[in-house]
Simulated assay, not measured.
Amino acid sequence: MNRDTALVTGASAGIGRELARQFARHGHDLVLVARREDVLQQVAEDLESRYGVDVTTIEKDLDDESAPRELYDAVHERELDIGILVNNVGIGTYGPFADSDLDRERTQLRLNVTTLVTLTRLFLDDFQERGEGKVLNVGSVAGFQPGPFMAGYYASKAYVNSFTEALAEEFRGTTLSATVLCPGPVDTEFQARAGMEDSAVGSVYTEPVEKVAKAGYEGVMSGDAVVVPGLPMKLTTALVRILPKPVVRRVARRVNSDR
């Protein structure tokens, strides 16, 4: 049984919580990170009682320039040996960019991109020293195309997708690996938090969060570079690659518009 400890950010709900469950089911000890300590503790107690693994919680709001380094230092202070880094934390903004809240757009960039890059770089030092390590970044099928009315979110996931694929190639032939999990609409609270309940996104198809997390776990453990859960999203991704860009943009605009 592989018991490499996995660190999961944004682990109190949604995909992060389900990814934590997948790792626990397969015998991995966990370090769970989120800003809601009470919820995080409930998740930890549930996983420990169900699966008999050790779960450490670290309360941390990663929307701060110094937060990734503080998290990394906290892991070392507790002498936790991380073998798998799961960068899941992130948010989405919705609406015309010209009307957007600039502070929230900056927060989106910090959480979706800057925090992910910083944590990856920091923990890669540890992985190289220990001789092995895995990175699982949560991207999105949104990252394969532009997204009118979610311009910043789609662009941030484009960075995550591209960044992770590049790392996967850099690591080819080594004991390190990088995997990007690229779900489409998922049955979580993400849309409500992004303020997009009235959009067409997810009105026709959503992937169960359990299946998305299972695909992510299997992908990172197999060393796959890209994981797109669900046949509908695999087909969507293939179409995006071959359709003319103007068509892709207009379809995305239609999907992201209010119903």
Rank of each mutant, 00 (worst) to 15 (best):
A6L: 03
V8S: 02
A13W: 00
A13S: 13
I15E: 00
L19W: 00
R21M: 09
Q22T: 01
A24T: 09
R25L: 14
H26K: 14
H26A: 14
H26S: 12
A34S: 15
L40V: 02
Q42I: 05
A44E: 01
Y51T: 03
I58K: 07
A67T: 08
R69Y: 14
L71S: 07
Y72I: 07
E79R: 15
V86M: 01
G95P: 03
F97I: 15
D103R: 14
Q108S: 12
V113T: 12
T114Y: 09
T114M: 12
T120N: 10
L122T: 04
E129A: 15
S140Y: 03
A142R: 02
F144S: 10
P146Y: 06
M150V: 14
G152C: 11
S156H: 06
E165C: 11
E165L: 15
A166V: 12
L167T: 06
A168V: 11
L176H: 03
L176V: 04
T179V: 06
G184L: 01
P185A: 13
A192C: 00
E197K: 11
D198C: 04
V201P: 00
T206Y: 01
A213R: 08
V220T: 09
M221N: 05
V227F: 08
P229W: 07
G230E: 08
L239I: 02
V240A: 13
P244M: 01
V247T: 15
V251Y: 11
D258Q: 14
